[in-house]
């Protein structure tokens, strides 16, 4: 059995009295790909925000690599090896593709003097390698805002990969992207998982995408955990079908 890498215990989060996440337990093991699904408004992104400490939890605890990180800051978690992408693509549109990649490698154990220097040569090499891996190398000098939606999504994944994280939280990585590019993203994620051992937690509405990639799926509904199991188990789970399609 593999070790738990990221663990949320009894996570609860409310916004002005409205409970977005209610006592959710979730464990992602090292090297696995886990899916997180649920109808719109079920609390998936809020749970993501809590797990990477962008939102403080009301109750519950978060453990990353066995350490209690409930009170940690997002940049501290990032340095420990947690990366994420966002439902609404968050790249730096007024910077070039290469600059976007280089940014994602900043501030790792650097002194005050280091930050006044330009990026390390090794960082630039890694950025270029990753851009090639993500089929974006020909666009490295292009402003990120000029890229297509799919290319921006790939860039965001590249930025998440730059610090060489152990786990990547992908929030609707295929939203608004054409099927060809979805297949590219899927292929790249598989390579990252199988060849480099990266762990993924993936929010997705595209059930086929989840089924093709993930060994386990957790379903949220109205902020609560409704079910957890293999993709086949989830597809036939009555409570899940009811949550998605009604009675």
């Amino acid at each position: 059995m593999k070790n738990p890498l990221l663990e949320g215990r009894q996570i609860s989060k409310s916004f002005q009295g409205l409970a977005a996440v209610k006592q959710v337990n979730l464990t992602v093991f090292t090297g696995e790909m886990m899916g997180l699904i649920g109808p719109n408004g079920s609390g998936k992104t809020t749970l993501f925000d809590c797990l990477c400490c962008l939102q403080p939890v009301d109750r519950g605890k978060i453990f990353f690599k066995g350490r209690n990180v409930t009170q940690a800051r997002p940049n501290q978690l990032a340095r420990m090896g947690l990366a994420r992408t966002f439902q609404r693509i968050r790249i730096y549109r007024q910077m070039t593709v290469l600059e976007n990649m280089l940014i994602s490698r900043q501030w790792r154990g650097e002194t005050l003097l280091d930050i006044f220097k330009s990026s390390h040569r090794q960082t630039k090499i890694r950025a270029k390698e990753l851009l090639e891996f993500l089929l974006l190398s020909h666009l490295d000098r292009e402003y990120a805002g000029n890229l297509s939606g799919g290319q921006q999504r790939l860039l965001e994944i590249g930025m998440a990969l730059m610090p060489d994280p152990e786990i990547i939280l992908l929030d609707e990585a295929t939203s608004g992207i054409n099927p060809t590019l979805i297949n590219t993203i899927k292929e790249r994620i598989l390579i990252l998982n199988q060849q480099q051992g990266k762990t993924f937690l993936i929010i997705e509405h595209n059930i086929n995408f989840i089924s093709d990639l993930c060994s386990r799926v957790c379903v949220l509904h109205q902020g609560e955990k409704l079910a957890e199991g293999t993709p086949d188990e989830i597809k036939t789970n009555k409570a899940v079908i009811e949550a998605y399609f009604g009675r």
Partner: peptide, 23 residues
């Protein structure tokens, strides 16, 4: 400089900057 890029990143998107490790 790396600092300059971090300043520009923080200006354009605070949360994205946080999540890539920028303090």
């Amino acid at each position: 400089t790396r600092l300059g890029k971090a300043i520009r990143a923080a200006a354009q998107n605070k949360n994205a900057a946080k999540i890539v490790g920028i303090d």
